[in-house]
Design a protein around this nucleic acid. Structure first.
Length: 312
DNA sequence: CCCCAGGCTTTTC
DNA sequence: GAAAAGCATGGG
């Protein structure tokens, strides 16, 4: 049986947009009940649905946690405790009124506060391939190395898998894991090495959570891992370590920076030097403290409005 | 057979 | 040091 709680938020949020804006690849729509989304957060199966712009409901198994515990978990997960005063600087709306008009519908997006290890692995799987294949990799990794959970909801059995712990992937066989990583063995090996670093304590996310650590230092620390460059390091910082100031730059971000703001329009490829330049320029028009948060909204708006890409 | 997909690593200047 | 080429893979 599932218990139900209702979360009343202080402002409008977009559940669907937040779950499928690309920052997470593990949320699923329950078949034949498309208004319900399901995932395993911290190994707890959770089903959610938006009721109103500022209200959503969550279902969860009673024996796994208490009401208050789950409520806290979801508030943390959606960062409902965070409502930035100056997500965009005042000058931004004066300088870019057209962009602001487009952004209107995307402001209720939330940046999810996800597990750092899950974020690390999922974004390692997001290099140079399309969304569908990314999702497939994460699905397969969870299916093969995570724990199966079957839950009954509205008279229907729903099977889902938790994201594997670091130790599970640390012990994985490269050949077997590569079948989950689009047959990419280099990627499989990098994932195993990263998982071992974490399992052995060489990589310590609790230390990296220290907000006083400069972003550059954090980024360089993460880049020591094979298969991680600036972009993925910034994704881990933003989505996994709560660094709203981290501003990941990929091809889409590069595009909107050029088209909308005239930043780096002359830059051809996203070399490390170009990356740092774009990063610095973007911070001049965004609030540096929330550059990543704002960038996430810009990113999603760009993909949907200009590129007409689906988000899930 | 071509190009593309939410980059990273190695080689070369 | 920093730009250019190479890389690895499936899908359309």
């Amino acid at each position: 049986m599932f218990n139900r709680i209702v979360i009343n938020t202080s402002s409008d949020i977009s559940i669907e947009g937040s779950l499928f804006s690309g920052q997470t690849f593990r949320w699923r729509i329950i078949e034949e009940m498309p208004e319900y989304f399901i995932n395993s957060i911290n190994s707890i199966p959770i089903i959610i649905r938006q009721l109103k712009p500022d209200i959503f409901e969550a279902y969860y198994e009673t024996e796994t946690t208490t009401d208050s515990g789950l409520s806290e978990l979801l508030i943390a997960y959606f960062q409902l405790d965070l409502s930035p005063e100056n997500l965009f600087p005042e000058e931004f709306s004066r300088r870019y009124p057209e962009v602001c008009q487009k952004l209107e519908n995307y402001l209720p997006l939330r940046v999810l506060r996800q597990d750092p290890f899950e974020t690390l692995i999922t974004f390692m799987c997001a290099q140079g391939i399309g969304m569908q294949i990314i999702r497939r990799q994460i699905e397969m990794i969870s299916r093969v190395y995570g724990k199966e959970r079957s839950v009954f909801f509205n008279g229907r059995e729903v099977t889902l898998f938790s994201f594997p712990a670091a130790i599970s992937l640390a012990d994985a066989d490269p050949e077997k894991l590569s079948r989950c990583t689009n047959n990419n063995r280099t990627r499989a090996r990098n994932i195993i090495t990263a998982a071992r670093s974490l399992a052995q304590g060489k990589l310590d996310f609790e230390k990296l959570r220290d907000k006083s650590m400069p972003l550059e230092e954090l980024r360089n620390e993460l880049c020591k891992l094979g298969g991680i460059g600036f972009k993925i390091a910034d994704c881990i910082a933003l989505f996994g370590l709560g660094r709203m100031d981290a501003f990941p730059i990929d091809t889409h971000v590069k595009q909107y920076l050029g088209k909308w703001f005239g930043i780096g329009a002359d830059i051809q490829s996203l070399t490390p030097a170009a990356y740092l330049k774009l990063d610095a320029e973007a911070r001049k028009i965004l609030n540096p403290c929330f550059a990543g948060y704002a960038g996430h909204i810009l990113f999603h708006c760009w993909r949907c409005e200009e590129k007409r890409l689906r988000t899930c």
